[in-house]
Design a protein around this nucleic acid. Structure first.
Length: 323
DNA sequence: CGTTTTTGACCGGCGC
DNA sequence: GCGCCGGTCAAAAACG
């Protein structure tokens, strides 16, 4: 009707990156970044200091994969199978705009923790436009006070092009779409994705002052893969997330995946026996290829500590939790 | 009763 | 210029 506010002019709608189909099968835990950014840059923007050395979270050789989808054509996978997905490689269809940084994580949790280990960041990163000031419209919930972002205001101007703000995408193998990350989110929309049978869900932080948004979708190629994209930084503390099972899980994951020199550690994963998902590495070909939807948990159960409800744990980028 | 989810429609950008 | 698509809003419904 009348007032529909248009999308924020502030950010470009670029959801171009996508997981490489089969390549994703190997995805266990790794990090991926679009060619546009370098991991450090991206992370920095979010206030995350993740070591980009060669060791990543996973035990694989290269936890971090700096991919250049565009040029290489992507999906990259490390020898160990760490890997990754490509980002926006021009699929030919349409969206081939920009890439977003992507991180692949194993089951839900890992990356969260990893990131969590680096708490030093101020949310004052440079531009975190309050995402969209457009929100002014305020939907029902949060829109109340959006960060003053002057820039945002300006950027929002119609004539101006939105500044593309860095986004951080995580690829997780989980049956749960919405992984817990310590913050409360309110779903404000869902849309069918063109090349995927799975819809994409849009979430916004419930904190009235926080404009952080999150996009969650499943890979069309591999239903068991969930792609979570964060935008913006939280301007408040997290509500807290479950930390039970921390020890055991941590240990379990740590061994196999955490490199000794890595700063990452696998934190607390919560175990939800019934909800659990599968470990990527152990996915049967059937699923990997796209076998069937991941319908029920337990399918493959897992040899690894499975985390049931998607728990990202402290995934929240430090910068986002500054409050 | 308050909050969150669902769902259809609208807006803007981009490609053709 | 037109059509497609992603992203968001907002009213109603559902849920705790």
């Amino acid at each position: 009707m009348d007032g529909k506010r248009k999308a924020d002019p502030e950010f470009i709608a670029d959801s171009s990156w996508e997981l490489g189909g089969e390549d994703v099968e190997n995805l266990n835990h790794g990090y991926l970044f679009g060619s546009d950014y370098k991991e450090s840059s991206i992370l920095s923007e979010f206030g995350w200091n993740i070591p980009t050395e060669s060791s990543g979270v996973c035990g694989c050789d290269g936890g971090f994969v700096d991919l250049d989808p565009i040029e290489s054509g992507l999906p990259v996978s490390s020898a160990d199978g760490c890997v990754l997905a490509g980002t926006t490689a021009p699929r030919g269809d349409d969206t081939s705009r920009s890439l977003e940084p992507m991180v692949a994580v194993e089951e839900n949790a890992t990356f969260a923790s990893a990131l969590a280990s680096n708490p030093s960041m101020s949310s004052s990163s440079s531009e975190d436009p309050a995402e969209k000031s457009t929100a002014s419209g305020g939907s029902s919930a949060a829109a109340a006070a959006n960060p003053p972002a002057d820039a945002a205001s300006k950027a929002k101007k119609k004539g101006q092009k939105r500044i593309r703000q860095p986004r951080f995408a995580f690829v997780t193998k989980s049956e749960i779409d919405h992984l817990e990350d310590g913050y409360r989110w309110r779903k404000y929309g869902q849309k069918a994705v063109k090349n995927s049978p799975f819809p994409r869900s849009y979430y916004r932080c419930t904190n009235s002052k926080c404009m952080v948004k999150k996009r969650v979708e499943r890979s069309s190629e591999d239903p068991s893969v969930v792609i979570t994209t964060y935008e913006g930084q939280h301007s408040h503390h997290s509500v807290g997330f479950p930390r039970s099972g921390l020890v055991s899980q941590e240990a379990a994951f740590a061994s196999p995946m955490a490199p000794s020199n890595s700063q990452f550690y696998y934190p607390r994963l919560q175990t939800y026996p019934h909800e659990n998902s599968l470990s990527i590495s152990q996915l049967p070909p059937s699923i990997q290829g796209k076998g069937g939807e991941s319908g029920h948990k337990g399918q493959e159960a897992s040899l690894q500590p499975s985390v049931g409800e998607g728990l990202l744990g402290d995934i929240v980028p430090p910068g986002m939790r500054n409050g």
